[in-house]
Simulated scan of single mutants.
Amino acid sequence: MSTPAAPGSVMRGAVDLSSLRNRPQSPAPAAAPAAAQDGGATPLVFDVTDATFGEVLELSRTVPVVIDLWAEWCGPCKQLSPVLEKVVTELGGRLVLAKVDVDANPQLAQGFRAQSIPMVLALVAGQPVPLFTGAVPEQQVRDVFAQLLQLAAQHGVTGTVPVDGAPAAEAPAEEALPPLHAEAFAAIEEGDYARAISAYEKALAENPRDADARAGLGQVRLLDRVQGSDLQAARAAAAAEPTGIEAQFLVADLDVVGGHVDDAFGRLLELFAALPAAERAPVRERLLELFGLIGDDDARVIRARTRLASLLF
């Protein structure tokens, strides 16, 4: 796919990075944290390896880190990488770009479920945010990064890195979250999705117009559904049962979490078309839920809504 995911629909914990957090660290001159520890400023664009990824996770607690998964043989990667570097540089330290050669770093490629490249995601406070795959136009990159900065600010990640020796800008004072939102965020950090769901449901009961709570509830419900699932096993089960609603739902959820939104919508629309009219309601409801999660103005949602309407009428 070539259109970006809505960063506002952050999938906190969407990629399992636990196996990479405590890997032994080895010297890597190109890695940003290592450069900073040597007394120099963190570069805006740098390479990251399986061994140095733990440092990048820590850096993402201060400034959003964009991850560019690429390979030397990948033509679209060579088109996209200069665009990413240009936009990151122009943002003057509000974002940094970490480049991952998937051939040289299989652990990271596996951890990020890189089924196709170029694949771009971000790290915010140690948590992954799927952005897009494919070589997208520069303006779309700018739009996605602008939304990413807004998302990072919502999570308190508002630092910058020094540029050309200039001191880092001070982060603006963070506005306190409402109590139930704070409870939900704390539960998400602990992996307690049931408690987070409960907190968001209470927030919505108090204020049905709370858009942040509604979005958060949809995101956490999605994460709760896929928690502990194995993607390959789920795909095998779905292939064995093409009209099995729950089997197809699970793969679609995993695809959304992994940033493959078009694939998820396509799977559910094909399921909707294949089922008798009397059995379609749950599929329609799941599609509408995912539309709301991604965002009504997202191009992929608009395309999927159009196709759903044609199937309905």
Rank of each mutant, 00 (worst) to 15 (best):
residue 69 L to E: 13
residue 91 L to A: 09
residue 63 V to Q: 02
residue 135 A to W: 08
residue 103 D to Q: 10
residue 120 V to K: 11
residue 143 D to Y: 11
residue 98 A to M: 05
residue 113 R to L: 13
residue 117 I to R: 12
residue 63 V to R: 02
residue 154 Q to W: 05
residue 127 Q to G: 06
residue 73 W to I: 09
residue 90 E to R: 15
residue 144 V to W: 07
residue 81 S to D: 13
residue 82 P to T: 10
residue 126 G to C: 12
residue 96 V to Y: 00
residue 162 P to M: 03
residue 72 E to K: 14
residue 88 V to A: 08
residue 89 T to L: 08
residue 155 H to G: 02
residue 151 L to Q: 08
residue 73 W to V: 08
residue 129 V to S: 09
residue 95 L to G: 01
residue 105 N to H: 09
residue 114 A to P: 07
residue 101 D to T: 03
residue 86 K to A: 14
residue 143 D to Q: 13
residue 119 M to Y: 14
residue 143 D to G: 13
residue 71 A to E: 07
residue 105 N to L: 00
residue 119 M to Q: 12
residue 82 P to F: 11
residue 132 F to R: 00
residue 135 A to K: 00
residue 67 I to Q: 02
residue 135 A to V: 03
residue 84 L to F: 00
residue 149 L to I: 11
residue 94 R to G: 04
residue 93 G to L: 02
residue 74 C to T: 10
residue 115 Q to E: 14
residue 142 R to N: 05
residue 124 V to C: 09
residue 61 R to I: 03
residue 110 Q to I: 10
residue 91 L to D: 09
residue 59 L to A: 06
residue 136 V to L: 12
residue 97 L to C: 01
residue 155 H to S: 07
residue 135 A to C: 11
residue 99 K to H: 03
residue 96 V to C: 00
residue 81 S to M: 12
residue 138 E to D: 14
residue 80 L to T: 04
residue 129 V to F: 07
residue 83 V to W: 05
residue 134 G to V: 12
residue 133 T to L: 12
residue 132 F to W: 10
residue 109 A to F: 02
residue 143 D to L: 13
residue 140 Q to R: 14
residue 160 T to Y: 01
residue 76 P to K: 01
residue 138 E to C: 11
residue 62 T to F: 04
residue 112 F to Q: 09
residue 59 L to D: 01
residue 159 G to A: 05
residue 68 D to S: 08
residue 74 C to E: 10
residue 140 Q to P: 00
residue 137 P to W: 11
residue 107 Q to F: 10
residue 67 I to Y: 01
residue 159 G to D: 03
residue 128 P to G: 04
residue 115 Q to H: 15
residue 131 L to V: 04
residue 96 V to S: 00
residue 65 V to P: 00
residue 129 V to T: 08
residue 67 I to F: 02
residue 149 L to P: 08
residue 139 Q to D: 14
residue 70 W to E: 01
residue 78 K to D: 02
residue 132 F to T: 05
residue 109 A to V: 11
residue 60 S to E: 07
residue 152 A to I: 05
residue 100 V to M: 04
residue 113 R to M: 15
